[in-house]
């Protein structure tokens, strides 16, 4: 019973961690709180499903495709929509308000497009849904694959941020944007890359969600909210924190669903969120500033 909860919780947490990673990159590097984040995730999930049902393409094959598409869309969104907001905001506070309003509008735009293209029905596919036994617990293969993708992508990102030249640039911009031009870093370019990469992660998360979850065109806000909760719990801009908080949330939701009532999972999520905001607004793993 406990093992089942832990394994299913970790599998769910993998998706959450990946979701949160993209949002935290976008906010940490580009300083844009993207309320349309969940819609980008959904867009990718719908595209994966459409390619699977229409052309019989395996989600694993389309994954690199939607990741690249997500990067491209993020790049364009930043260059066309966010850049003017960044350019006119002298201080950081204004950009936050402006970007929240702008992406709130974008949310409905994408949602409308999704409703138009794919309808309002719940969607799911049956892909590799045979059971595999892990430590005596039967887990659907599609969930395990989704978990594997999240772990590999998340770990690759953490390692790249920690060890590469590119990662150093991204961290420098995230931590002290004011000093970045002194070492020749083009902050605008770094922000565009961070935003685009965040969108790519949203797309990968969407693809992994499409493999095992049922979703509808209006579910984006739930993904955004959960990602936001995880980002804040992990400490804003803190990548390892987001990973840990993502797994933690997956465990808690699964535990609440199995031990208490499945209907309470969202309530539990937000109860924890409230507690974190009250006691540790800098996040469970964030440093005091």
């Amino acid at each position: 019973m406990l093992t089942t909860t832990v394994i299913l919780g970790l599998v769910l947490g993998g998706t959450y961690a990946l979701l949160a990673l993209g949002l935290t990159l976008q906010y940490g590097i580009a300083r844009i709180m993207n309320l349309a984040y969940g819609e980008l995730t959904l867009l990718s999930a719908f595209v994966v499903v459409a390619l699977f049902q229409g052309l019989g393409l395996s989600p694993l094959l389309t994954l690199p495709l939607v990741a690249a598409g997500g990067y491209g869309i993020g790049w364009l969104l930043y260059a066309v929509m966010m850049r003017p907001l960044v350019a006119r905001s002298q201080g950081r506070g204004r950009l936050e308000v402006d970007s929240i309003l702008a992406t709130f509008g974008l949310l409905f735009l994408i949602q409308g497009g999704l409703l138009l293209a794919f309808g309002a029905n719940f969607t799911s596919i049956s892909y590799l849904d045979r059971g595999v036994t892990v430590l005596g617990v039967s887990v659907a293969l599609n969930r395990l694959i989704a978990f594997g993708i999240c772990v590999v992508v998340g770990a690759a990102l953490v390692v790249a941020l920690k060890t590469t030249r590119w990662g150093l640039i991204m961290r420098a911009v995230a931590l002290t944007p004011g000093s970045a031009p002194l070492v020749g870093i083009d902050v605008n370019r770094a922000a565009r890359q961070g935003f685009a990469l965040g969108s790519a992660l949203a797309a990968v998360a969407g693809a992994s969600i499409s493999m095992y979850q049922t979703f509808s065109a209006t579910a984006g806000v739930v993904f955004t909210m959960k990602a936001l909760v995880i980002v804040i719990m992990g400490g804003v801009g803190n990548v390892p924190g987001a990973l840990a908080a993502g797994f933690g949330l997956g465990l808690i939701e699964t535990f609440v669903a199995t031990a208490i009532d499945p209907g309470l999972t969202l309530a539990a999520t937000f109860a924890i969120f409230l507690l974190v905001l009250l006691w540790r607004p800098q996040g469970l793993f964030g440093a005091r500033r």
Binding site: L168, A172, V183
Partner: peptide, 9 residues
């Protein structure tokens, strides 16, 4: 890391 950032150009 601060010094390495200096060598970014």
């Amino acid at each position: 890391e601060n010094l390495l950032l200096g060598a970014i150009p």
